[in-house]
Simulated scan of single mutants.
Amino acid sequence: MSEKRWVTFDCFGTLVDWRHGIATGIELVAPAKGRQLLDVYNRHEPEVQRDHPGMRYSDVLTEALKRTSAEARLDLVEDDFRVLAAGIPFWPVFPDTREALRDLQASGWNLALLTNCDRVIIGETQRRLQVQFDAIVTAEDSGAYKPARNHFEYFEKSLGVTRDNWVHVAQSYFHDMVPASELNITRVWINRLNEGGDPSIAHAVRPDLSDLAATVDQVHRKFNG
């Protein structure tokens, strides 16, 4: 079994500004509607992922936008629905992301992504992150989308990771904190949106990635001896 210490991350929403990316993409085909329809889209995307666990994320984006458009009665043409998949390589990285990742690497942690996207998209996104990850698990690899447990179980089994050397860091309560809690993985909730939810589900709650290396070290020592 591996004795390496691992920090796993969700990507979109935690490291990359998912909400900005979705809203800006919608704006391109439905001006002045992006922010207005963001929550509508956010409701449809997990439904598509649940209905089609084997669908590539680029197609999830397209289908979720189609459902959003139908609900909002937007007058879009077929090509418009690909706007989110086309734009995702350019979604902005949060300003605190790169420094936090580099600090963790300097502290001796191995980094991995457990992401609800496909291999092509994460490959394109890595150039913006500018940090080398030691492992990546996509929905395409695991065969399902979080909050299903597949990502976590695939990562654990394929790399021989022990849970006493593993901390998971993510923004989404629904997609990440809940399944990580069910699996008893040490976890840090990056509550960027000041969402509701029981903060005791996480071993630490932070508003952003500042001082993340110190937080990860602290929870690892406290909860894993």
Rank of each mutant, 00 (worst) to 15 (best):
M1G: 10
M1W: 08
W6P: 04
F9C: 10
D10E: 05
W18Q: 12
R19K: 15
G21R: 11
T24K: 15
G25A: 08
A32V: 07
V40M: 05
H44V: 11
E47N: 00
V48Y: 02
H52D: 02
G54P: 00
R56K: 06
S58M: 05
R67C: 04
E71F: 03
E71N: 00
R73C: 12
V77R: 11
V83F: 00
V83K: 01
A86K: 06
W91P: 03
W91I: 09
P92W: 10
D96A: 13
T97R: 02
E99F: 13
A106M: 02
N110C: 07
A112T: 04
L114H: 03
D118V: 00
G123E: 04
T125H: 02
F133R: 08
T138Q: 00
K157C: 05
G160H: 02
V161D: 02
V167M: 11
A170W: 07
Y173M: 13
F174G: 09
F174N: 10
V178G: 10
S181A: 15
E182P: 07
E182S: 12
L183N: 03
N184P: 02
R187K: 15
R187P: 11
V188L: 13
E195V: 03
A202C: 08
A202H: 08
A204E: 14
R206M: 15
R206I: 12
S210A: 14
L212P: 08
V219L: 02
F223Q: 10
N224V: 07
N224L: 05
